[in-house]
Amino acid sequence: MIHSLPGNFPFVAAVVLLGIGLYILIFRRNLIKIVMGIAILGSSINLFLITLGYRIDGDAPIYTEVPSELMVLPVVQALTLTNIVIGVATSALILSLVIRIYRHTGTLDSVKSRRMKG
């Protein structure tokens, strides 16, 4: 399967996800959808980082005695793992703020719930 796709296909997927995330952030008014937009943006960056380090037929970099020449880059995987953890913390905080905003204003529409202007 992976051999039949062009080599830079995952990068295209990452950029498409990035575009979807930015579109949601700019054009959607629902606060929950904004949280989803940030999550999609985070996933696209994660996909991008993992793809950077991936080598077709590469081994996982977990050996002390290396069995083959080709290995997957471990550093980007560590970066991705960190970003996933940070993403969970960010989503949890934003969702709790959304709950608070809903309790105060009774709406999730960012135009109606807005208290500050100018």
């Binding site: 960010t90 905003i101 204003t105 500050m116």
Partner: peptide
Amino acid sequence: ADSQEGGFKYIV
């Protein structure tokens, strides 16, 4: 309510 809104904007 406004401080919740401020926190939301900052984190986004």
